[in-house]
Simulated assay, not measured.
Amino acid sequence: MDQPHFILGHLPFWLVTYGLAVVGWTLIGRFTMQFFVPPDSPLYIWRWFRRLTDWAVRGAALLVPRYVAPVFLPLVAAFWVFTFRMAFGIAMWTAGMAPSLAPAAAPAAG
């Protein structure tokens, strides 16, 4: 049974899913922080949260109707990022490119 390495054998799967998870959770953090920090704050954490997630918020603004308040756009973007992450994971699993926790079953001796 020659199975690929759990991490290195599935590196594209891990990089994309981890990257999307980081962006998704950062969007949720951005949504929460915006109630405590002004939009033009010089705080380095806020600047990096915005820098990391601005592309997703702009994309969400294109997908939702204009009557959705801008304050909710990070949540909408997080929903779409997590949805894409799940679809990507299912597609990779279906194609056999995602890792498996259980090794292939050996034939029963008998």
Results as ranks from 00 to 15, higher is better:
Met1Lys: 00
Met1Arg: 00
Asp2Cys: 00
Asp2Pro: 00
Gln3Leu: 02
Gln3Trp: 09
Ile7Asp: 09
Ile7Tyr: 11
Ile7Val: 14
Gly9Ser: 05
Gly9Lys: 04
Trp14His: 04
Val16Thr: 01
Tyr18Met: 14
Val22Tyr: 12
Val23Thr: 11
Val23Ser: 05
Val23Tyr: 05
Thr26Val: 12
Leu27Glu: 07
Met33Ala: 15
Met33Gly: 15
Met33Tyr: 13
Gln34Ala: 13
Gln34Ile: 09
Pro38Tyr: 10
Asp40Gln: 14
Arg47Asn: 10
Arg50Tyr: 09
Thr53Leu: 06
Trp55Gln: 04
Trp55Glu: 08
Arg58Ser: 00
Ala61Trp: 01
Leu63Arg: 07
Leu63Asp: 06
Pro70Ile: 06
Pro70Gly: 15
Val71Leu: 11
Val71Ala: 13
Val71Thr: 13
Pro74Thr: 01
Leu75Met: 13
Leu75His: 10
Val76Asp: 07
Trp80Ser: 07
Trp80His: 06
Phe82Gly: 10
Thr83Asp: 13
Thr83Gly: 12
Met86Pro: 03
Ala87Gln: 06
Phe88Arg: 00
Phe88Leu: 04
Gly89Met: 09
Ile90Cys: 04
Ala98Cys: 05
Ala98Ile: 02
Pro99Met: 03
Ala102Leu: 10
Ala102Met: 07
Pro103Leu: 02
Pro103Ala: 06
Ala104Asp: 05
Ala105His: 04
Gly110Leu: 00
